[in-house]
């Protein structure tokens, strides 16, 4: 899906936990996330901290969208 939406002309940032799959399906901007059942959260944190964690990940995704990439790029910390 990542590839087809990008093919149509819209930049996509893929937020996912299993990065090797994302690389194989052809995502160009990749943000590694927390865990498979809760990519953008961590139930062991307090609600406020969890939202902060989510915000950091989404902000990272926005930075990725503003970054020119040459080929597949995993945005690590």
């Amino acid at each position: 899906m990542v590839k087809e939406i990008e093919r149509a002309g819209i930049p996509v940032v893929h937020m996912c936990t299993v990065v090797p799959i994302s690389l194989t399906v052809g995502a160009n901007r990749i943000i590694p996330t927390i865990a498979i059942p809760h990519p953008l959260g961590n139930p062991s944190l307090e609600a406020i901290e969890e939202k902060l964690l989510r915000r950091k990940l989404v902000e990272k995704a926005l930075v990725a969208l503003e970054t020119e990439v040459d080929g597949q790029t995993v945005f690590e910390d």
């Binding site: 939406i5 819209i10 498979i36 969208l65």
Partner: peptide, 24 residues
């Protein structure tokens, strides 16, 4: 592929600039 093509068409028609795609 089919779903994404349909979705992309709709996104373009609505002038969406960028997509955040999340996967579990």
């Amino acid at each position: 592929v089919k779903y994404a093509e349909d979705i992309a068409k709709d996104l373009l028609a609505n002038n969406v600039d960028a997509v955040i795609l999340t996967s579990t």
